[in-house]
């Protein structure tokens, strides 16, 4: 297996090649890189790959040290639809 085919985001199976190419082509920050490739948008919410996605983005953009590069959104753990819609649930 080459580095190009190496997986970075395990949940969405986004490869190193895709991330590096996308970063170079669009000169994008971490958020844009995530939205373009889906890296960090899978089941785990990006806990595992966020620093690597961030590192790729930092090769082409400057880090904003005062703002988390990949914003956190609720829910931070997967929630069953049944629990979301449940009536009278505590």
């Amino acid at each position: 297996m080459t580095d190009k085919d190496m997986i970075i985001c395990r949940c969405e199976e986004v490869t190193y090649g895709e991330l590096v190419e996308t970063a170079n082509e669009y000169g994008c920050n971490a958020r844009e890189l995530k939205l373009r490739t889906r890296a960090g948008m899978g089941y785990c919410g990006g806990r595992t790959c966020r620093n690597m996605v961030d590192a790729v983005a930092c090769t082409v953009t400057e880090r904003d040290s005062k703002q988390v590069t990949l914003k956190y959104q609720p829910p931070v753990r997967p929630v069953h639809f049944g629990d979301l819609g449940a009536i009278g649930h505590d």
């Binding site: 085919d5 190496m6 997986i7 970075i8 190193y16 595992t48 790959c49 620093n51 690597m52």
Partner: peptide
């Protein structure tokens, strides 16, 4: 935080 290696 991981490091990425082919096959990981």
């Amino acid at each position: 935080s991981p490091v990425a290696i082919p096959g990981w």
